[in-house]
Design a protein around this nucleic acid. Structure first.
Lengths: 154, 154
DNA sequence: AGTATACTCCGGTTCTCCACTGGGGTTTGC
DNA sequence: GCAAACCCCAGTGGAGAACCGGAGTATACT
């Protein structure tokens, strides 16, 4: 059995990453004020199971993307400016790729090697897209999208 | 519970796809002669569990990428020229993305919508890489790789 | 000081998919 | 007719995703 023994391209974008991004998009507008947001609020706003979101926020905290304030009136806030956090930062820490050995590895057959090379190309292409988007980008895209919605009376 | 209810980017490249590509790379040189190759031979050559490879080849056959010859002295052969089959053709049929509704779908919140848009970008970037490579490309890359191996006495 | 409000840590549960195995059946060449 | 091949279908077992729950800990407010 192999069970993802090879490079195992983590280009798969699960709802885990989507939840994390939704939460960070909620936190982004509150970065300036410095007011923390609670898990419950984020969860109910974006329709995410709160106990699950809790785990994701803990991962983001350990990765240094958010900071937490414990106790009453506590909650979470972004650790950096929303335009200094790329989607790659978020997805890579949630999906946890960077545990494996370097992608420029050697395969046991020449056929496997050329496939590995292509896999690496795909990975880089996907990572490139994620690296060029920041949280602030998405916030502004959402604002623009809402304008469109209003114009079309949706 | 969501369990991949949303678009669920199937950009994930599993060993399933790798096995299928390895098999097709074995078949590619035999396309000109028209001589079929048996599952057992491909499997032992590329170190793939044969009963598993059988399923993958069945999928490829139903997708019209390979043809099968039943009975004694039977086997598999490519249905088209190896330079007319892209890696996207292979991966998409094996990974089976095109079951879902169209990726340009509407999310229930504007935040989810912008994330869907990015997901679509990532998907397209990955698909673009796969679309520009053909089986024949890989065969030639492998040959070149083998030349390098010989030069360096590996 | 006490209490309510939050995060923190740890474990378990269910579901889904991947990777793989096996048992039959059918077609074909010799 | 018989062996060699494909064909179909039905499992198994592990890993991870997507949760739920409880006990503990820090903090603000009164």
């Amino acid at each position: 059995m192999r069970y993802r023994s090879l490079p195992a391209l983590p280009v798969d974008l699960s709802s885990k990453s989507e939840y994390a991004l939704l939460a960070l998009l909620e936190l982004s507008p509150h970065y300036a004020s410095g007011e923390p947001l609670q898990i419950r609020q984020i969860a109910s706003q974006q329709n995410i199971p709160d106990r699950y979101l809790e785990q994701l926020l803990a991962t983001l905290r350990r990765a240094g993307l958010v900071k937490s304030q414990r106790g009453a009136r506590g909650g979470y806030l972004l650790a950096r400016d929303p335009w200094k956090i790329t989607l790659y930062d978020v997805v890579s820490c949630i999906e946890g790729f960077e545990g494996q050995p370097d992608p420029t590895q050697v395969a046991d057959t020449p056929e496997a090697q050329v496939i590995q090379n292509v896999w690496g190309e795909v990975r880089q292409a996907a990572e490139g897209v994620l690296q060029k988007h920041t949280l602030q980008d998405l916030v502004e895209q959402r604002n623009a999208q809402q304008q469109v919605d209003i114009m079309y009376y949706i």
